[in-house]
Simulated scan of single mutants.
Amino acid sequence: MRLHRDFDTTLLLLAVALTCLGVVMVFSSSCVVAGEKYGDAFFFLKKQLKFALVGGLLMALTMYVDYEFWRKIAIPLLLLGICLLALLFVPGMGVTAGGAARWLRLPGITVQPAEFVKLGLVLYLASSMTRKKEKIRSFKLGLLPYILVLGAILGLLLLQPDLGSAMIISGVALTMLLMAGARWSFVVPLVLSVLPAVYFMIMHVDYRRRRILAFLNPWKDPYDTGFQIIQSMIAFGSGGVFGKGLGGSEQKLFFLPEAHTDFIFSVIGEELGLIGVLAVSGIFLLLVLRGLRIAWYATDPFARYLAFGLTLLLGMEAFVNMAVCLGLLPTKGLALPFISYGGTSLIASLVAVGILLNISSRIEVPQ
């Protein structure tokens, strides 16, 4: 064994490649809409470049910040994220778009607190589970405190409403707890007990119920609830194997809603074809494997939990977004990490990679 003193350059290159592709695809998918709405075809490109620059600088910084630092400030960061979520409901501070108040207006910037909460929760869980060790197998001392924290976060998310982020956070948290040794006999009944509530929140809220029905049969209502997924399918289908070429998408011309955000993967499918779709999926798969490799070789429990949680977060978000675009899951308002337009998501993803890179420089790997 040897001390791996260098950063995982493969992981770094994968993150940079996805970010660069994201900048290109944001411009390609948004230039027409930006020109029509703002009179500037480069409107979203210029913003995404700024986000990428800030995110890149923060990634470079976190690469050199000892991961132990995050253990010390995990709880304050999580509390800050929860406070930001709560501020969404203060009149004049929450920005509503698409019927949901998910963005917070601060002096000079607009942020999405859910992205920070995701990072904060992973840091908190990794730090707390390291301290509890075998106590994690106890319900009262191990699982119950996490249920209370998770419940508070989910409550604020569902009030926005943001069911997509709530489900991602739940999946990441429960998987991390099981990895740390939480009893299946506690976790499984817990999940089963909340399923009726999930069913009620979906089937008794009109727009969610319509989304589920549209997912099952989008052609039943092709001009309303099924419109988005149908246009996405048309984009993938018309792209063929090699695509129409960069900038050649027709679905982005006011047919495909959210073409530069939630459904940017569909534009990739149309312009870069099956080859592009497989390439992007492959890069995400390699990124997840590199993250899991870092977690596997980490001997410090905190580093292992942290690397696993961050990798799981990035992987789950990418999988859900791509599955939605392909019509394999109901429509959710989740960004594709590194690629979708949006500053908070991009910066949070790059910070997560920066932390993973720092852990990679402190692990032992086989020669």
Rank of each mutant, 00 (worst) to 15 (best):
P76V: 01
L104H: 08
L49N: 00
L106A: 09
I82P: 10
Y67G: 11
G39E: 03
L77I: 14
V90M: 13
A101M: 10
R71P: 08
L80S: 12
G99E: 09
K50S: 13
K47A: 12
A101C: 13
A97N: 05
A97D: 04
L49E: 11
T62S: 14
G94S: 09
V95F: 07
F116H: 04
L49D: 00
L45Q: 01
V54T: 06
G39F: 08
E115Q: 05
F43R: 07
L84R: 05
G56L: 08
L79E: 03
K118G: 07
A74K: 04
L78G: 00
L87D: 13
V95Y: 09
L104I: 10
R102Q: 10
F51R: 05
I82R: 06
G81L: 05
Y67I: 11
L104D: 10
L80Q: 03
I109L: 14
L106R: 04
I109R: 00
V95A: 06
D40W: 05
Y38R: 07
P91M: 08
G108R: 08
V117Q: 01
R102S: 12
G94R: 09
C83F: 15
G55P: 08
V117F: 02
V117E: 02
V65M: 12
R105M: 12
L77M: 14
M93D: 03
G55E: 02
K46Y: 09
L45M: 12
R105W: 00
L58R: 04
E68K: 14
F89S: 11
T62M: 14
Q48K: 04
T110V: 15
G92K: 03
T110N: 09
E115M: 01
W70E: 04
L49G: 02
A97S: 13
P113S: 01
L58E: 03
T110A: 13
D66E: 10
T96I: 12
G94D: 06
R102M: 02
E115H: 01
A114E: 02
T96W: 03
L57V: 14
D66F: 02
K72V: 13
A60M: 15
T62I: 00
P91S: 09
V65L: 15
Y64V: 12
D40A: 13
A100Y: 05
L79M: 15
F116L: 15
A52T: 01
G56N: 08
K46M: 07
I109D: 01
P113A: 00
V65E: 04
G98D: 06
T62L: 15
P91W: 06
L79P: 06
L84N: 04
L78I: 10
L45C: 03
A97K: 12
L78V: 07
L84V: 11
E68T: 14
G98A: 08
F69E: 03
A114K: 00
G98M: 11
